[in-house]
């Protein structure tokens, strides 16, 4: 929101005197009692007018800045702005600078992220982008748009080097960050692939993580996800570690459910059934699910 006290309404600007603003489809002479809504109503009135006339000019570009400040969720503002940037051949670096505050103030709005992506695409140069995203992730480490944009940059410009280390760092800070686990899978898959050596280190990394924080859905899900890439030796190792964890009293629904899956995947039906029965007792919210698993095992 522009709380700028120097802001002059468009209706009071001489260079806009030739345009008649268009009102939203409401009663004409009503008054809104919210302080900054006059700025909002004023700039969007002129926006509707230029959308109708199709004017593409510097003053319209300036108008979209005000409109974006007032309501960045209005997707048409960003479309019009891109049209103007292309038409007026605006400096794309300057636009990226403008987008820094826009994104900082509207992190959950996908329009602003997409607009930035388009600018970088047009520029064909990702310099500084990974750092920028990294900074945004300091604010909200699970921002879906930020991660998605990061994946786009990595793939588009082939920037895999060092990305696994970034995942390490993010997970060291918060091992419950599901977005970072997802990124980890994405990075391994697209860089080295889940080779036998890579699996050795991924299994150790994940087991260390679950040993440190047992009740963590995300790390268990990752372990479940990479299990299918494991060879027999690695599978046996995973089961071994989990059983040890379990017998030492570090139980959680997650570790037990992984054990159930691994027993099932390696054909140890009786142990799997025992795990399912235990889960049914402990995880009351999902008792029907565990009952279903137990029934399947009995029917096999």
């Amino acid at each position: 929101m522009s709380s700028d006290e120097d802001h002059v309404l468009y209706k009071d600007r001489s260079d806009w005197a030739d345009v008649k603003p268009l009102d939203i489809e409401t009663d004409k002479d009503s008054v809104i009692n919210i302080a900054y809504s006059e700025t909002f109503r004023d700039c969007y009135g002129y926006l509707r007018a230029v959308l109708k006339s199709g004017e593409l000019s510097e003053r319209v570009f300036e108008l979209t800045t005000t409109c974006a400040d007032e309501n960045p969720s209005c997707y048409t503002v960003w479309l019009l702005r891109r049209k103007l940037i292309a038409h007026l051949k605006k400096d794309l670096r300057e636009e990226l600078d403008f987008m820094v505050t826009q994104i900082q103030e509207n992190q959950k709005n996908y329009q602003v992220w997409y607009h930035r992506q388009k600018m970088v695409e047009w520029l064909g140069d990702p310099a500084g982008e990974l750092e920028f995203i990294r900074n945004m992730l300091e604010w909200d480490a699970k921002n879906y748009h930020a991660w998605q944009y990061r994946q786009w940059i990595l793939r588009k410009f082939n920037l895999w080097d060092g990305e696994l280390a970034v995942c390490d760092e993010m997970l060291a800070k918060d091992c419950r960050n599901n977005s970072a686990w997802n990124q980890r899978y994405f990075v391994v898959l697209n860089s080295t692939g889940f080779t036998s050596e890579v699996m050795d280190s991924e299994i150790e990394f994940t087991l260390d993580s679950v040993r440190e924080v047992n009740y963590n859905e995300s790390s268990w899900n990752y372990l479940r996800g990479i299990f299918k890439h494991a060879n027999d030796k690695q599978k046996a190792h995973i089961i071994n570690v989990l059983e040890k964890e379990f017998s030492s009293g570090r139980k959680s629904v997650f570790s037990l459910s992984i054990l159930l899956d691994t027993y099932e995947a390696t054909g140890q039906k009786d142990l799997a059934l025992k795990a399912a029965e235990q889960l049914k007792e402990h995880d009351l919210l999902r008792a029907n699910y565990w009952d279903f698993r137990a029934r399947l095992l009995r029917e096999e």
Binding site: Y144, W147, Q151, N182, Y185, L189, N190, N221, I226
Partner: peptide, 16 residues
């Protein structure tokens, strides 16, 4: 479709 069986916005986007 992701490794956890869920789906994201684009290929490899986190399940949501």
């Amino acid at each position: 479709m992701n490794f956890d069986g869920g789906f994201g916005r684009r290929p490899h986007s986190e399940t949501h």
